[in-house]
Write a protein that binds this DNA or RNA. Structure first.
Lengths: 128, 128
DNA sequence: CGGTATCCTCATAGATACTG
DNA sequence: CAGTATCTATGAGGATACCG
């Protein structure tokens, strides 16, 4: 793994924290996954992502854009049109994300069974 | 990428959400990274992870254990000794995580420059 | 040593309303 | 259509104290 013993204060962790904050928030990965399939309009994203508020969609897109992972293209027509796409670097992160998705698919059942077992044992202990 | 257009309500997203919640919280990945280097005692983890509270260390370890990613071994000596290690499945997630860490190392500078540029442009626009 | 229990705070995100 | 502004609330996480 080559991870230093002391993490949490050094530069390595800051890098890691940055990416985890990026990848860990509620909507970023979902947006990147969709944009991995190609450029999308604002309204397309809104429809594609079930349950996202307009506020969070905009906020998340802005921070992805700020990080250079997504590019925003405005077409000043009437009605206005705004398209979002992954940048080349965004595509490489999107690839990492898709690897994580496939991990989750492979181990979904295992985790589910683990949780059931753990909860059953915890309950058995609570009421002996 | 092979990601469906509609995410957020279907099974695919639940799997993904599960992993993201797992990987996205503040301490799980740090703990998994350290345990990737081998088994560690509770107190070793506490010292290794700068800034973690006892509460969060315990909570995070419990949920990792619940998911079958970490195994907890109690040695009932005096003083008591508790060791934590990755399970085989935990090791595979740890590998994904290390891939993400290396991505973050490779693109740390790019993101930093992107943010600086974005913020500079935002400020330039705010005060023209 | 390896935890629980309790309280508290402060970001994150949802709902709603309005706009160029 | 593609946002911004404002308000609110919920829950993750920190601080502290105590326990087997």
């Amino acid at each position: 793994m080559d991870v230093p013993d002391q993490v949490g204060a050094g530069a390595v962790t800051c890098q890691l924290r940055d990416v985890l904050d990026r990848v860990g928030d509620k909507w970023s990965v979902l947006i990147m996954a969709i944009l991995g399939g190609g450029s999308r309009r604002y309204s397309e994203l809104r429809r594609s992502i079930d349950g996202i508020s307009q506020r969070m969609l905009t906020l998340t897109l802005r921070s992805l854009e700020r990080d250079g992972l997504v590019i925003r293209t405005v077409t000043p027509s009437t009605p206005p049109r705004v398209d979002y796409a992954l940048t080349p670097v965004g595509q490489t992160l999107s690839a990492e994300v898709s690897s994580l998705i496939s991990w989750s698919e492979r181990h979904r059942e295992y985790i589910g069974r683990s949780r059931d077992r753990y909860d059953a044992e915890a309950e058995a202990e609570a009421r002996p």
